[in-house]
């Protein structure tokens, strides 16, 4: 249980800004800062496990983007001839790498978002405007695991029954799969009649739906949001003046000895820190 209660909309504003910034700020120093901060945050939030599963796929995708981009795009001034007349440009190679890196940062931000904002928080925000959508989401969350469980049971039974039959091969496998699905669908339809009745019996659609979820806007939300907005505005101003973004095409205008020590970089850094600060503060209580 968390002791700092932050309104879900505060979180959403913050993370939307983070995810936008992951794409806008392509300067390697900014990107690295972003990566370090968000990895620290994920570690403190304690979700490395889920994260490890997700990132494997994304690293492969990242490598593919980094490889495919120079194969398909020939923009840029610096040509590197590989064999004969075939060339790639240095710029499109670097662009591919940066794009892949941005995507991974976005994924990181999303993972952290998932941990910070539960689906119930999201529902709370949705349910006021779209009550029908929110009830569909809740029901899906109930029934997808249930159907999954049922399909598992049916498959277990069918595997057992077909173990000794001599018929094997693809066509029979497909036949068995169709059989399993038939059973599951008829079973589920039968049960869903009762679900419908149970909803009707408990007054579904007799009035406009409300929600049991309840959030207050606290002082911390005001401070948090104003902090975020000030830091983000400063960073954007910096971006307009050319801080934090590098031009790749036609030639790269970046060298590693230009460390961006200015107010815009610091406001970018500050923007990344508040959640880490809050999480550490929470941890301190227990030690």
């Amino acid at each position: 249980m968390r002791m700092t209660k932050i309104h879900p909309s505060t979180y959403i504003i913050y993370y939307v800004i983070l995810i936008m910034f992951a794409f806008l700020f392509t300067n390697p120093y900014y990107s690295l800062t972003f990566a370090i901060c968000i990895i620290t945050l994920i570690r403190i939030q304690g979700i490395q496990k889920e994260f490890k599963g997700a990132i494997k796929g994304f690293i492969i995708m990242g490598i593919m983007i980094a490889v495919i981009n120079p194969l398909t795009s020939y923009q840029g001034a610096t040509r590197i001839y590989l064999w004969g007349n075939y060339f790639m440009t240095l710029e499109s190679m670097i662009y591919g790498v940066i794009l892949a890196f941005c995507l991974i940062l976005t994924l990181l931000a999303f993972t952290s978002f998932n941990k910070a904002v539960s689906y119930q928080d999201l529902l709370y925000l949705f349910s006021k405007k779209f009550p029908a959508v929110s009830i569909i989401i809740i029901m899906a969350l109930r029934f997808i695991p249930l159907l999954n469980h049922r399909l598992g049971e049916i498959n277990k039974l069918h595997d057992f029954e077909n173990e000794n039959s001599e018929k094997k091969g693809l066509i029979n496998k497909i036949k068995n799969l169709v059989d399993s699905l038939t059973v599951m669908i008829s079973w589920t339809l039968e049960e869903s009649m009762i679900t419908t009745k149970s909803m009707k019996a408990r007054g579904y659609k007799t009035a406009k739906r409300t929600s049991y979820l309840f959030y207050k806007i606290n002082r911390i939300d005001v401070i948090f949001t104003s902090f975020t907005i000030i830091a983000a505005t400063l960073s954007i101003i910096g971006l307009i003046y050319g801080n934090g973004r590098i031009n790749i095409y036609p030639t790269i205008n970046f060298s590693f000895d230009q460390f961006p020590l200015n107010i815009y970089y610091f406001s970018f850094l500050l923007l990344l820190l508040p959640l880490i600060y809050l999480e550490i503060k929470e941890e301190m209580v227990w030690h």
């Binding site: 119930q120 809740i138 029901m139 969350l141 109930r142 679900t195 149970s198 909803m199 408990r202 007054g203 579904y204 659609k205 007799t206 009035a207 406009k208 739906r209 409300t210 929600s211 049991y212």
Partner: peptide
Amino acid sequence: VTDTVIQEIAFPLENIG
């Protein structure tokens, strides 16, 4: 109908607004 206990208990009350 729903996924958590509290949501299930709240369900009819939400329905009647």
